[in-house]
């Protein structure tokens, strides 16, 4: 591989780099999910009061809405957490070039947003992420819980936003270098994804379902 100029760098990130990253991502995610689900659960012999499936799926949805008590006690984490997650998904899923990518790779498409809107979402998302990083460094509980992985994951999630913003605003020249850096940052994110807490993007559906199912069995509203 010769990355002597920006174009070759871009070609690599659009070609081999993307293939490598996607392969590691897919292999890693599948391993992680199979490792979990194949462990299975012991059959519950207690007579159930309710069903599992419905409450399990309901919990998948209802856990996206935060309970009142948590909001009252941690409004900052809740609000900023929503902002950055929503902002991130707006940037990821509603920016037309991204839709083109997802259409080409997954075969599905949907309408995008005008670029200036996505651009604002990116700026807001980055501010929210910075605020959460500062919060993580300051708040006694978050600081106590945080490991190097939390900061690494923060950085690797932040970089695609930052490099995307830089590429969109053409703040690094030549543009292929900026776009290449953006793709490289996304590829790094994909590579570390299966080995870090980023996996929650997939496993939270399992976690919420299992908990909701348990609650359903016992007749507790999930």
């Amino acid at each position: 591989m010769d990355i002597s100029n920006a174009n070759e760098f871009l070609i690599w990130t659009r070609g081999s780099g993307f293939n490598i990253a996607v392969s590691i991502f897919i292999i890693g995610v599948l391993i992680r999910i199979l490792e979990i689900v194949l462990l299975g659960r012991k059959q519950d012999l207690a007579e159930p009061r309710g069903t599992e499936w419905g409450p399990g799926f309901k919990n998948i949805l209802s856990r996206s809405l935060v309970d009142k008590g948590t909001f009252r006690r941690s409004p900052f984490v809740v609000v900023v957490g929503y902002i950055w997650h929503i902002g991130f998904f707006v940037c990821l899923l509603l920016f037309v070039p991204h839709i083109e990518l997802l259409h080409a790779t997954l075969g599905i498409k949907w309408p995008g947003l005008p670029n200036p809107l996505v651009d604002s979402a990116a700026a807001v998302t980055m501010f929210a992420m910075l605020a959460l990083l500062i919060h993580r460094l300051m708040h006694p509980v978050m600081k106590f819980l945080s490991t190097y992985e939390d900061y690494l994951v923060w950085l690797l999630t932040f970089l695609p936003l930052l490099t995307g913003y830089i590429a969109y605003h053409r703040m690094i020249n030549p543009y292929p270098a900026a776009l290449g850096l953006h793709l490289l940052s996304v590829e790094l994110l994909l590579v570390v994804f299966p080995f870090t807490k980023l996996m929650h993007a997939f496993t939270l559906f399992l976690a919420r379902w299992y908990t909701g199912a348990m609650m359903g069995r016992k007749g507790i509203e999930s």
Partner: peptide
Amino acid sequence: ALSIPDGDYAKAAGYAV
């Protein structure tokens, strides 16, 4: 489109799966 990767990612993804 410029944002679409241009390698044989479908094949790579198939092997990865």
